[in-house]
Amino acid sequence: MENFTPLSALAGGVLIGAAASILLWLNGRIAGISGIVGGLLAPVRDDTGWRALFVLGLILGAVLYRTMGGPLQTIEIETSPILLIAGGLLVGFGTRMGGGCTSGHGVCGLARLSPRSLVATVVFMLSAGVTVAVVRHLLGTTG
C-alpha cells in the first residue's frame, strides 16, 4: 500500500461530488458521464449544448490541473491498440446497456439510494476486480 494517497483521493472525490450536486441543483441533471456522452450520439434539439459543454469542461478541468502544475503530469496507460479498442468497446457498450457508469450509478445513483444503481455498482466493481485478477494473476501479464 505504499502508493496510498488518501488526502488527494478524498479532495478529488469531494470536488466530483460537488460538481454532481451543482449540476443537479442548477440544471436538474444527473452527472452520469456515459449518459451525458451517450445523449450526444443521438442529438435531441435543445438538449445537446449543455452535454457538449459539460464534456468540454471535464477536459478543461484536467488541462487546468496540469497547467497549474498538479503533481500528476503524466498518466500510465495500456499501450496495445487492440486491447485499448477492446476495452473501449466494452466500456461504451456496457455502460449504455446497463444505464450508467461509475459516476451515474456509483456517485449519483447511490446518493439517491437507487436499488438499480446499488446492484449495478456492486456488479461492475466485482466484474472489474475479477478481470484484473485474471489478467494480472491468472495470466500473469503484469505486476
Partner: peptide, 8 residues
C-alpha cells in the same frame, strides 16, 4: 460543473 468534475 464539468470543469469541477474534471479537476476532481
Amino acid at each position: 460543473a464539468g470543469v469541477l468534475f474534471g479537476l476532481g
